[in-house]
Design a protein around this nucleic acid. Structure first.
Length: 587
RNA sequence: GCCCCCGUAGCUCAGCAGGAUAGAGCGGCGGUUUCCUAAACCGUAGGCCACAGGUUCGAAUCCUGUCGGGGGCACCA
C-alpha cells in the first residue's frame, strides 16, 4: 500500500502528459490513495490497519467540490487537533495534485478540494461524446449475477404489489448491468402442490357452472372473473365433456398456462423479460430428495436436523431451532407433499451450483420469515460465509392502496385486488407508474391513492425530468438549424469558454453523476437514481434560464455550451434507461 | 406473544457505513415570457428530524427504552 514520495512517478507523468483524460471514479481512487499514503508517511504505525480514507462530494459549493473527513477521524487516533492534522496533510500534498485547482482546510478539519476547470470540462466532454455508461466504474468486471424477482405463482394476473417488485427488480438488474455485471433475470414459480390444485378446481367449478351446474369454488380457491373467462375458453377449445373427476390434470394445466400467459403479458407492459422461468417441478424429485438427504445427514448437539413427526412417520420436520430460528417447521407433509421452505432451499442450492458471484432475491414483506429460514438452511449446507458473500435478499414493503380515503385490503384468492394493468391505466402511463415506485426506497411503505393516481401523475417528477431531456433535444435541433455543432471530440476544448459561474455549477453536477450512480449500484438502491435525475433536471433548467446557449454571433462558445447540454442529456437518458423509463425528444 | 419496516415541511417522500447552515416534488403566497420548449425559473412562508436517555469533539444518522402507524408469524406460496 505504501507509495514512496507519496505521488507515484508513473501516476504523475501519466496524468499530466500521456493521459489527458481522468475519469471521476479514478480521480477519487487516486486522491484517496495519495491521502492515505500521506497519512502513513506522517503518522506511520499509529494508523490502524483498517483505517479507510474516503473522498466524497461536498454538500455545499462553499466547501469545494470534494471533501475528505479523515483528519477528523484521525483526531481520536493521534490525539491532536484535527485542524492541525489536516494542515499537516495539506502541506505535503498541496500543488502536487493533478486535476485539483486548490486544497483548503475548513471548519473543524475538513480537507476540501476544488476541481480544476480543465478537468470538469474534460469530464463533461466524455459524458457528451461517450455517454454515461462509459464513465461508470466496472464494478462487476464481468462477474455473473442472478436477480430473482416477481416470482409470483401462476394463479392470476399480477397485482400492484407485484408491480412494485417487478419495477424494483428490473431496475436493480439494469443498475448492475450498467456497472459491469453480467446479469441473468430469473422468475421462480410453483407449478405443483396445493395452490395449483385449488386453481384447477376453481376453474372446473366455473366450467361446470357454464351449463347451469352449481358452481362450488373450493375453500381457499380463486374467485377472480378471469377464471370464468378461462372456463369459456376451455369449453370452446375442448368441448363440455370434461369433469374434475376424470380430467383434473387438463384443468390444472390449462389454468396454469393461461396464468403464465397473463403474467408474461403483464410483464411485457413494463418491458420486462426474464432470461429464465424456473419451475418448481424441475426440482422434483431429484433436487429436493438430495436436499433432504443432505439436511438429514447433519447433526447438531447430537440431534438430527431432520426428524419425523411423533404421530406420523411420513411427516418430516426441520429443526430450525438448532439453526437459531424461533420454531421448527414441517418440510414434508403426511401426504408426501413438500412445504414451501424445502423446494426453496433446493432451488437456492441449484442457483449456488450454477456459479454466480452474486445472487439477489427481491421479495415482498410476506417472505420475510420464510426467507430467514431458507437462509439458515443454506448456511448450514453451504457455509455461512459463502451464503453471506453471495446472497442478498431485498425485502420491499407492501403498497397500500387507498380509494375514497379508505385502505383496500387485497386478496388474490377472493378476487379482490387491483391489477398491475389497472394501476398503469389509472396512473396514466407506464413511465409514471415505474417512476412513482422507484422514487421510494424498497423498505418504505407506500400509500397509493387510486383516486389521485391520474392527478398525481400530471404532477409526477418524471415529467420534470423528461421535460429537461426534451428541452435539450429541442436545443440540439435549434443549434443544428443555426449551423452550430458540438466541438470535435478529439480536440481539447478551450476551458476559458466555460469559465462562468453557471457553467461550472452544471459541470460540477455532471462530474458527480458517475460516482453517485456507482454508489447506488453498490447499495442496490435504484431509488437514488431518481434523486440524481431530479438534481440534473433542476441543474439544467437553471442553467438554461441564465445562459443563452445557441448564439449565432458566438459559434465557438455556443459549441462548447452545446457540449454541456449534450453531456446533461446523455446523463439523463442514461439514468432513465437504467430505470426503464423513456427519454422523449419532444413533449 | 415473537419478528420486520416506518415515524423528517400542509401532503408524498429523499437524506441515515456520524460531520460543516436539514432537502426535493406537490400544495400556499409573490414575481419572471419582444429571446433556444413557462411541463420552466426566481423569491418567500412552512421543521423541538415522534419522545426520552446513552455513546461521541460532533447524532436526523449509531445504541437502549417509550409511544404511534403498517406488515409478517400455515402441514398456502
Amino acid at each position: 500500500m505504501k507509495c514512496s514520495g507519496v505521488i507515484c512517478p508513473e501516476f504523475s507523468s501519466m496524468t499530466r502528459r500521456n493521459h489527458p483524460k481522468m475519469e471521476p471514479a479514478s480521480l477519487r481512487t487516486e486522491l484517496e490513495r495519495i491521502l492515505s499514503a500521506t497519512i502513513d508517511d506522517i503518522w506511520g504505525n499509529q494508523i490502524p490497519d483498517g483505517f479507510q480514507v474516503t473522498v466524497s462530494g461536498s454538500d455545499n459549493l462553499e466547501f469545494g467540490d470534494l471533501s475528505c473527513q479523515s483528519a477528523l477521524k484521525l483526531a481520536r487516533i493521534v490525539h491532536d487537533n484535527p485542524r492541525r492534522s489536516a494542515s499537516m496533510i495539506v502541506e505535503r500534498i498541496e500543488g502536487e495534485l493533478p486535476w485539483i485547482s486548490s486544497v483548503s482546510v475548513d471548519g473543524p478539519g475538513f480537507i476540501n478540494f476544488s476541481l480544476s476547470l480543465q478537468y470538469l470540462v474534460s469530464v463533461s466532454g466524455m459524458l457528451a461524446f461517450k455517454g454515461l455508461k462509459s464513465l461508470l466504474p466496472d464494478i462487476g468486471n464481468g462477474r455473473k449475477a442472478l436477480v430473482e424477482y416477481v416470482s409470483s405463482n401462476p394463479t392470476g394476473p399480477l397485482t400492484v404489489g407485484h408491480c412494485r417488485q417487478a419495477v424494483l427488480g428490473e431496475a436493480i438488474s439494469s443498475l448492475l448491468e450498467a456497472t459491469g455485471w453480467e446479469v441473468s433475470r430469473e422468475y421462480y414459480f410453483n407449478d405443483t402442490g396445493r395452490q395449483m390444485m385449488l386453481l384447477g378446481m376453481s376453474l372446473a367449478a366455473r366450467y361446470e357452472a357454464i351449463d347451469g351446474g352449481e358452481a362450488e369454488i373450493p375453500e381457499g380457491g380463486y374467485h377472480g372473473d378471469y377464471i370464468t373467462e378461462w372456463a369459456l375458453e376451455l369449453r370452446d377449445e375442448q368441448g363440455s365433456d370434461l369433469s374434475w373427476e376424470n380430467n383434473s390434470t387438463a384443468f390444472i394445466t390449462f389454468a396454469k398456462e393461461r396464468a403464465m400467459e397473463m403474467i408474461k403479458s403483464d410483464l411485457s407492459l413494463l418491458s420486462i423479460e426474464f432470461d429464465r422461468y424456473f419451475a418448481e417441478s424441475e426440482l422434483i424429485p431429484d433436487a429436493v430428495r438430495s436436499t433432504i438427504a443432505k439436511l438429514s445427514s447433519i447433526e447438531i448437539d447430537g440431534k438430527s436436523l431432520v426428524y419425523p413427526d411423533n404421530d406420523d412417520k411420513e411427516k418430516l420436520w426441520l429443526r430450525f431451532t438448532s439453526l437459531g430460528r424461533p420454531t421448527d417447521r414441517v418440510i414434508v407433509r403426511d401426504n408426501g407433499m413438500y412445504t414451501y421452505r424445502l423446494p426453496d432451499i433446493a432451488y437456492h442450492i441449484d442457483k449456488f451450483s450454477r456459479g454466480y458471484d452474486l445472487m439477489i432475491d427481491v421479495f415482498g414483506a410476506d417472505h420475510l420469515d420464510t426467507s430467514k429460514d431458507v437462509t439458515a438452511g443454506l448456511e448450514i449446507l453451504l457455509g455461512s460465509s459463502t451464503v453471506s458473500d453471495k446472497l442478498t435478499i431485498i425485502i420491499h414493503q407492501f403498497v397500500t392502496l387507498v380509494r375514497e380515503g379508505r385502505k383496500i385490503k387485497m386478496s388474490t384468492r377472493a378476487g379482490e385486488f387491483v391489477t398491475l394493468r389497472k394501476l398503469i391505466h389509472d396512473a396514466g402511463s407506464v413511465d409514471v407508474t415505474k417512476y412513482l415506485f422507484l422514487t421510494r426506497r424498497a423498505e418504505a411503505h407506500m400509500d397509493f391513492d387510486l383516486d389521485l393516481a391520474r392527478k398525481e401523475s400530471n404532477e409526477n417528477p418524471v415529467y420534470y425530468v423528461q421535460y429537461a431531456h426534451a428541452r435539450i433535444s429541442g436545443i440540439m435541433r435549434t443549434a443544428k438549424e443555426a449551423g452550430i455543432s458540438l466541438p470535435d471530440e478529439h480536440t481539447a476544448v478551450s476551458a476559458d469558454l466555460l469559465d462562468g459561474e453557471h457553467e461550472r455549477e452544471l459541470m460540477r453536477l455532471l462530474e458527480l453523476v458517475p460516482s453517485r450512480t456507482a454508489a447506488a449500484a453498490e447499495a442496490r438502491e435504484p431509488h437514488r437514481l431518481t434523486e440524481i435525475l431530479a438534481d440534473l433536471a433542476t441543474g439544467f433548467h437553471r442553467f438554461y434560464q441564465h445562459v443563452r446557449i445557441v448564439d449565432s454571433d458566438d459559434p465557438d462558445a455556443s459549441s462548447v455550451r452545446l457540449m454541456l447540454c449534450e453531456a446533461c442529456r446523455r446523463s439523463i437518458s442514461g439514468l432513465l434507461e437504467i430505470l426503464g423509463v423513456d427519454a422523449p425528444e419532444r413533449m
